[in-house]
Design a protein around this nucleic acid. Structure first.
Length: 448
DNA sequence: AAAAAAG
């Protein structure tokens, strides 16, 4: 279905056109008409499917057709980077409708607080906020949501994981009951169902292939001890011409040491975690998106929703403890129906988690053991003790439980169906995000 | 045994 088949305001069609949106993705095709009708919605969709535009387009349509003075839309998200990214999308799509927006989040030291207060008092069409900072403003009493018509909870399952339920309910208690509410969640656990029941009215429900990675991702598992991981990574990097790689690690404390180790090996890498200063987080992410350096080392702060064009690789330096996070991490690549490679290093301790991931994916991925032939010593054997978790006995065991050291052949673990069509959405953003400071590449990770 | 978010 083409975008101009939706019943959209002329200005918005122009915006959609300027962004070169043509064919709607499945989630957009399903969500846009229902949101246009004013229905509440609960949608379960993998990231990288055009989820954000699926709600921004109809919301902006509502703003174009019924302009109002004060805030019409509140979008709540779990991380600051996601808030900023959505704000940038609003800037692009909202340009021709003259929609105003602001991202509201904490961690900043500059004039942001006053800018945020001003937007909240004098009005902006769309507010994109992380819960903590929004609450802080609300407690000061000047935030008015009396004209609010649309509330969106994005990455709702993540927000509950992060303990935001109380904040969300408190925020919701101060916005009109007469409103449209949209919930987007990667998964649909009972807690999400409960919340949906509580805050949605006769919701439409959209389910899109739950927890399955995109078809274009080539998943590769390598057995490696902690000492072998870095040299193995270097070996794999040598085979790539111009890598654009996000390397995930589960610990904030490892980000810096990996960045420094890569620096010593001559790779230009920078890191992001909640330990980084917010201004550094922003500059590093922007510079990485602009391909100013090839390797970004990050914690799971970036595992959800963050959109990076043409990311060639995701590397899991360790296996995430939550199998859902694996799907989210590797979903940073092969977005918008392109292709990408997801490499996961598995040491002895990581192995039970691998079984849980494979159970979630309903796929067994070949465990490659190539460290020996690279002269890095013997790889850890793949012999997971167990995959602690729910006691259901349907656990699938890997067909090849032990290390088959001679198989250097690339694994065949991509999802079988769907050819990887390339769509390459050309984004000529009509207006730049107003808040982006321009400065040069970050300065703090050269070899010491 | 982690991560994120308010300061």
């Amino acid at each position: 279905m083409h975008f101009n088949e939706f019943d959209l305001h002329d200005d918005l069609l122009q915006a959609v056109d300027s962004m070169n949106f043509q064919q709607a993705t499945p989630i957009q095709e399903m969500a846009i008409p229902r949101i246009l009708q004013g229905k509440d919605l609960i949608a379960c969709a993998q990231t990288g499917t055009g989820k954000t535009a699926a709600y921004l387009v109809p919301i902006l349509n509502s703003i174009a057709t019924h302009p109002q003075e004060h805030i019409s839309t509140l979008i709540i998200v779990p991380t600051r980077e996601l808030a900023q990214q959505i704000d940038e999308q609003v800037q692009g799509l909202g340009y021709f409708v003259n929609a105003t927006s602001i991202a509201i989040y904490g961690g900043t030291k500059g004039p942001e607080w006053d800018q945020q207060r001003k937007a909240l008092t004098q009005g902006a069409d769309i507010i994109i906020a992380t819960p903590g900072r929004l609450m802080a403003h609300m407690q000061l009493g000047y935030v008015r949501f009396d004209q609010l018509r649309h509330l969106i909870l994005d990455e709702a399952d993540r927000m509950l994981d992060m303990g935001f339920l109380g904040d969300i309910l408190k925020i919701m208690s101060q916005i009109p009951a007469q409103r449209q509410t949209l919930m987007f969640s990667a998964t649909m656990p009972p807690k999400i169902r409960e919340l949906a029941k509580r805050i949605l009215q006769e919701p439409e429900e959209i389910q899109l292939s739950v927890s399955k990675p995109a078809a274009g991702i080539d998943q590769q598992f390598y057995l490696a001890s902690d000492q072998q991981k870095l040299p193995l990574l270097v070996h794999l990097l040598k085979k790539v011409n111009t890598p654009s790689m996000v390397l995930f690690t589960s610990r904030r404390s490892s980000v810096d040491s990996i960045v420094r180790a890569l620096g010593r090996l001559g790779y230009d890498a920078y890191g992001i975690s909640s330990d980084s200063e917010q201004s550094v987080r922003e500059v590093v992410l922007r510079d990485f998106k602009n391909r100013k350096f090839p390797i970004l080392v990050a914690t799971d702060v970036l595992s959800r929703g963050i959109d990076i064009d043409n990311l060639s690789h995701v590397v899991n330096f360790d296996v995430p403890r939550d199998p859902e996070d694996y799907v989210h991490r590797i979903g940073r690549t092969a977005r918008a129906e392109t292709t990408g490679t997801a490499i996961t290093f598995i040491n002895q301790d990581d192995q039970p988690r691998v079984l849980r991931i494979e159970r979630l994916l309903e796929t067994v991925v070949e465990k490659q053991a190539i460290t020996q032939q690279l002269g890095l010593g013997e790889a850890p054997a793949f012999a997971p003790r167990s995959a602690k978790g729910n006691g259901s006995g349907d656990r699938k065991r890997s067909g090849k439980p032990s290390s088959n050291a001679r198989s250097g052949a690339p694994t065949a673990a991509r999802n079988p169906d769907k050819p990887a069509k390339k769509r390459s959405p050309r984004r000529n953003r009509p207006r730049k995000s107003p808040s982006a400071p321009t400065s040069s590449a970050p300065q703090d990770s050269s070899p010491s």
